[in-house]
Nucleic acid binder design. Sequence first.
DNA 1: GATATTAATGCAATCGATTGCAATTTCCAT
DNA 2: ATGGAAATTGCAATCGATTGCATTAATATC
Lengths: 348, 348
Amino acid sequence: MKHHSETTIHDIAKKLNISASTVSRALNNNPLISRKTSELIKKTAAEMGYRPNVLAANLRTKKTKTIGVIVPLINRHFFSSVISGIEDIAYQSGFTVTISQSNDLLEKESYIAHALFANRVDGLIISIGMETKEYSHLQLFSERGIPLVFFDRVVDEIEANKIVVDDFGGAFKATKHLVGQGCKRIAHIGGPLNLNIYRNRLGGYKAALEESGFEIDNSLVLQTSLTREDGANSAKQLLQLPDAPDAIFCANDTTALSAITHFKDIGKKVPEEIAIVGFSNEPFSEVVTPSISTIKQPGFQMGQKAAELLLNQINGFNAKQFETFVMPTELVVRESSRKLKDCPEAVN
Amino acid sequence: MKHHSETTIHDIAKKLNISASTVSRALNNNPLISRKTSELIKKTAAEMGYRPNVLAANLRTKKTKTIGVIVPLINRHFFSSVISGIEDIAYQSGFTVTISQSNDLLEKESYIAHALFANRVDGLIISIGMETKEYSHLQLFSERGIPLVFFDRVVDEIEANKIVVDDFGGAFKATKHLVGQGCKRIAHIGGPLNLNIYRNRLGGYKAALEESGFEIDNSLVLQTSLTREDGANSAKQLLQLPDAPDAIFCANDTTALSAITHFKDIGKKVPEEIAIVGFSNEPFSEVVTPSISTIKQPGFQMGQKAAELLLNQINGFNAKQFETFVMPTELVVRESSRKLKDCPEAVN
DNA sequence: GATATTAATGCAATCGATTGCAATTTCCAT
DNA sequence: ATGGAAATTGCAATCGATTGCATTAATATC
């Protein structure tokens, strides 16, 4: 008789004078086992305080019921929303979620990816970091057939399911909206162009201008890292132009806010003298003064969708080819850009 | 010859005509193995693209190098900050972090705890949900000697290391500050008292009033769920009192903001007519107008500390008894409560 | 050069569950 | 009863690494 802490299926088997395989099958609801013994086994297991050793099962089945998630920074509203959505779906399917942040560092991202791989996650959901221009750590997954889903910041070079927001459409709507409010010179404070999302936002901006019959003035298009400082500096820089803009479409809300703050500081009126639209609908955008018009991204839903896709792949329901899902964006019109009274609050 | 995907230590052993145990030891830098063979083994392992199967090792060693984290909601600034801090430290020690959210539901919290337990996490870090008044799912851990660290919302009934913020001190400072600004009737919008944090904030508020020679007027002390609606409703309710307050200390920033918004709507001036202080320093507090005075909690550092404590316990360095660490808070004075010009911006 | 030490390596059991295949039991129809 | 299909159950290998103990090789001692 062993007297160590955990009871195993063998302990149960011994007690009932049956084989461990029968116990295992019964506990897994295998229909081969008769109703009677099955119930007896479950009852005994409960009595003995049996807890399956997931590790052993994982080793044998080569599955972990765990999915890995890598984001640049957990502590950012959009990403934590997505994580929340992923966790929500995973939980419903009995999957565990392991979350790591890359801090936008390629080295860390790579290390984490390898660690998750070594830990045999059943799948990976990732939004790549700013530095990531090399993908061997991700090919690891695609090559070995481990389901991989990208969201938001995706990699064109790797075939996989991808969830992106309609950055192009959002930027297009934002810019069109500014045009509709009567703005004539619309600037853009953009982000690093190695990331698809910022390329697309720039693209939407340009397309809207062209469709509206405006020429694209490159002095009005700034490429930044989208930090708070970048917002203020860009605002300053744009005002110093000989022909200053009367509107700015910012690639995120952070720069929109710091630009607005700068304008407030120097007494320039928003939106009367300069209208602003941001991107992402950060929690603060609604509550600052003036409130910031922005593009709403369905973070939670993206997470849910990403998790659904991943789980489908894990369960082998991936009959179709890989797809790229574009999540709709919504323009939320607030004070920072509302110059006309009859402007609707939201545009899908 | 096997031709399945992954190479194992046995494959390496066979190739070099040595035993698997030697390979295992060499790869784990066991000093028993001679330098020469050790290097040869590592070289060969690399050539063969060997990747250790963590699952097998885990099964054998009964360790997973994984720590579980349960928070009420990932998508909230304070919690995601803490998670970020935990992940930071865990990463440095080669630990993986598995994160789940309870959504403040006891049932889900319990389910998750059991799942993490079944997955044999080496330790658990948790901030309990609003509903949690029964702790069997946590005693599971403490009883089986699995390291457990509480943060923020802790359980008094379970002995463990705990990290809390100095809610009492923060509330005390906030209230004292209002007194210092000349406020005479200071109200409190508080949270559910089954959570230690809200009990302590209430306690700090009362202590500060008493020390200042004020009497505690229970009509000025509201207990709410601290939602946005609660903030507005409470504000309304307080104003309708025969002897309305001239200041409110709110137990979180959300209610502070919605109270302020309500006051703005009805034309009551903040802070001139009514001063407000919140709690938590949400990102929006700094950027709204008026900006909200609040108590800053070191979320990231709390996470780091929690992870350090847990790792120490896991590694058996827990010589001392369990301790409760109180993280310092800081009063950040902003527009919503600054009535006097010479008021300092921050108070530790 | 024989023996005592120490350094390296190998053997084989173990962690706990899963599963293909074989063996046994049960149940029916004849 | 009896043959045989169908329903249950058991055997034993397997997943891949770890580790106490035994064994062999290398080095030291006299």
